[in-house]
Deep mutational scan, measured.
Amino acid sequence: KELVLVLYDYQEKSPREVTVKKGDILTLLNSTNKDWWKVEVDDRQGFIPAAYLKKL
Score class of each variant (00 low, 15 high):
Leu26Tyr: 05
Lys55Cys: 09
Tyr8Thr: 08
Trp36Lys: 03
Ile48Glu: 00
Trp36Thr: 03
Val6Ile: 04
Asp24Val: 08
Pro49Asn: 04
Pro49Glu: 03
Asn33Lys: 07
Val18Ala: 05
Val39Met: 01
Gln45Thr: 13
Leu56Asp: 02
Tyr8Ile: 08
Pro15Phe: 08
Lys22Arg: 11
Leu3Tyr: 15
Asp35Val: 15
Asp43Cys: 13
Asp42Pro: 08
Asn30Trp: 08
Lys34Phe: 09
Leu28Ser: 02
Ile48His: 00
Pro49Trp: 04
Tyr52Val: 11
Leu7Ala: 03
Glu40Asp: 07
Asp24Pro: 00
Leu3Ile: 08
Lys55Asp: 03
Thr32Gln: 12
Ile25Val: 13
Lys38Pro: 01
Ser14Ile: 04
Asp9Ala: 07
Gln11Asp: 14
Tyr10Ile: 01
Ser31His: 10
Leu5Ser: 04
Leu28Pro: 00
Asn30Ser: 15
Thr19Asn: 05
Tyr52Arg: 04
Tyr10Met: 01
Pro15Ile: 10
Leu29Asp: 01
Lys34His: 13
Lys54Trp: 11
Glu40Ile: 11
Leu3Ser: 07
Trp36Gln: 03
Gln45Met: 10
Tyr10Arg: 03
Gln11Phe: 15
Tyr52Ser: 07
Leu56Trp: 09
Pro49Met: 04
Asn30Cys: 11
Leu56Cys: 10
Val18Phe: 10
Gly23Tyr: 05
Leu5Ala: 05
Asn30His: 07
Lys34Tyr: 09
Leu26Ile: 13
Ala50Leu: 02
Trp37Arg: 01
Thr32Ser: 13
Thr27Ala: 11
Ser14Phe: 07
Trp36Leu: 05
Val41Tyr: 09
Asp35Ala: 15
Asn33Thr: 06
Ser14Gln: 08
Leu53Ile: 07
Leu26Trp: 06
Leu29Cys: 07
Ala50Gln: 06
Arg16Ser: 13
Leu56Ser: 03
Lys1Thr: 11
Leu56Ile: 14
Phe47Met: 08
Asp42Met: 14
Gly23Met: 03
Val39Ile: 10
Lys1Trp: 13
Thr19Val: 03
Asp9Asn: 09
Asn33Cys: 11
Ile25Gly: 00
Asp42Val: 12
Asp9Glu: 05
Pro49Gln: 04
Lys38Gly: 05
Ala51Glu: 09
Lys54His: 11
Arg44Ala: 06
Asp24Glu: 12
Lys22Glu: 07
Pro49Ile: 03
Glu40Ser: 10
